[in-house]
Amino acid sequence: MPKSQRIAVAGGTGGIGNHLVDGLLELQSRSPSSISKVIVLSRSSNKPYLQSPSSELRAPVIAVDYSSVSSIANVLSEHQIDTVISTLVGEPAQFISAQENLLQAALSVPTVHRFAPSEFAPDSELIKSVPLYEMKLPILKSLREAKAQRSSSSLPFEFTKFNCGIFMNYFGFGSPKPNGSQALGHLRAFPYVVDISKGTADVPGDGNDKIWYTTTEDVGRFVAEATQLKEWPETSNMAGEAVTINEVIEKAERISGRKITPKYNTEAELLARMDPNPSTWMGNFYLDVYISIIRQEQLQETSNLNELTNVKPTTVEEFLQKWWGKEN
């Protein structure tokens, strides 16, 4: 299978999407023969382009209508895209429709031979306790059907799920460093489980279940390097480190010098905290994720991208030291 050279990132102006664009442009700058073009698909083009933080390279932002297969296909065809990476988000009905239209557009363009659906979290097919993750499943069925149909044709096609566990950047929320806000990268400010700034931790279960953590910057680097693999496995796992929440708390206390008081939650206690009538589609999402941790649904298999690429990811210790370590 040819390596990726002309890549479109759908939803690339969003949090994780922006990090993927950063990683792709960084690789393009370092190795111009690897990637020749990166474009960003967006529902609006308020930004004319995204620029690499490490070079002058830019990725144009192109407005597309995700309700129109032909609109998307025209853009992919015009730029001779060979790889489509989705980082789309949204309420379930809109999300499922947008991803399906994106795939159908990609399949209609002869140059496209690779597609990555919007995963970038724990593996959606392993998570049974989070209803919102069900919206990620229809596209996987369509992808497997497309791959099977193309297996004997002159237009080969492959896909992969990029799984990265939980974004480590959330541990940087409230960092006292002068540039502390940069710890979150392009993500919105949000403390996940452990809030070092307040000295608290809202822990699912007893805190002894291992969870995969990866920085968003490393996710971008892993994905960029994966575009240069000769073959894509259907599952591409990556991780900075697999540690328990109790280990995170211990490291955070030691490095920051702050006491962290954990609140351990049983599954029954988490269920009691659920809103019976959530006002938004995100509703009880984070509590559902907590329950999936207790039920040990977030245990990934071997992180194959750690072995297949040259990325040296940031560990939890390194991340905490950077954003919470005491000055010498």
Results as ranks from 00 to 15, higher is better:
Ala105Leu: 07
Ala105Pro: 15
Ala106Pro: 14
Ala106Val: 03
Ala106Gln: 07
Ser108Ala: 08
Val109Cys: 09
Pro110Ala: 04
Pro110Gly: 06
Val112Asn: 12
His113Cys: 11
Phe115Lys: 06
Pro117Phe: 08
Glu119Val: 06
Glu119Ser: 07
Glu119Ile: 05
Phe120Met: 08
Phe120Trp: 13
Phe120Leu: 07
Ala121Glu: 05
Pro122Phe: 00
Ser124Phe: 13
Glu125Gln: 14
Glu125His: 12
Ile127Pro: 13
Lys128His: 14
Ser129Asn: 08
Val130Lys: 05
Val130Tyr: 12
Val130Met: 12
Leu132Phe: 13
Tyr133Lys: 08
Tyr133His: 10
Glu134Thr: 12
Met135Glu: 11
Met135Asp: 12
Lys136Asp: 13
Ile139Cys: 08
Ile139Arg: 04
Lys141Trp: 14
Lys141Asp: 15
Lys141Ala: 14
Ser142Trp: 12
Ser142Lys: 14
Leu143Cys: 10
Leu143Phe: 12
Leu143Asn: 11
Arg144Pro: 14
Glu145Leu: 15
Glu145Gln: 15
Glu145Tyr: 14
Glu145Gly: 14
Ala146His: 10
Gln149Asn: 14
Gln149Lys: 15
Ser151Gly: 12
Ser151Asp: 15
Ser153Arg: 06
Ser154Gly: 11
Ser154Gln: 11
Leu155Lys: 11
Pro156Phe: 01
Phe157Met: 06
Phe157Thr: 05
Glu158Lys: 02
Phe159Asp: 12
Thr160Trp: 10
Thr160Met: 13
Lys161Ile: 10
Asn163Phe: 04
Cys164Leu: 03
Cys164Met: 08
Gly165Ile: 02
Ile166Val: 09
Ile166Phe: 15
Phe167Arg: 02
Phe171Val: 00
Gly172Asp: 01
Gly174Lys: 03
Gly174Arg: 05
Ser175His: 05
Pro176Gly: 04
Pro176Ile: 02
Lys177Leu: 09
Lys177Met: 05
Lys177Val: 01
Lys177Ile: 02
Pro178Asn: 05
Pro178Thr: 02
Gly180Pro: 05
Ser181Trp: 00
Ser181Arg: 04
Gln182Ala: 03
Ala183Ser: 08
Ala183Val: 03
Leu184Asn: 04
Leu184Trp: 02
Gly185Arg: 02
Gly185Tyr: 01
His186Ile: 00
His186Lys: 06
His186Ala: 09
Arg188Asn: 06
Ala189Ile: 00
Ala189Arg: 03
Phe190Gln: 00
Pro191Lys: 00
Tyr192Val: 00
Tyr192Cys: 00
Val194Asp: 01
Asp195His: 02
Ile196Leu: 02
Ile196His: 03
Ile196Phe: 04
Ser197Trp: 03
Ser197Lys: 07
Lys198Glu: 12
Gly199Trp: 11
Gly199Asn: 06
Thr200Glu: 11
Ala201His: 04
Asp202Arg: 09
Asp202Leu: 11
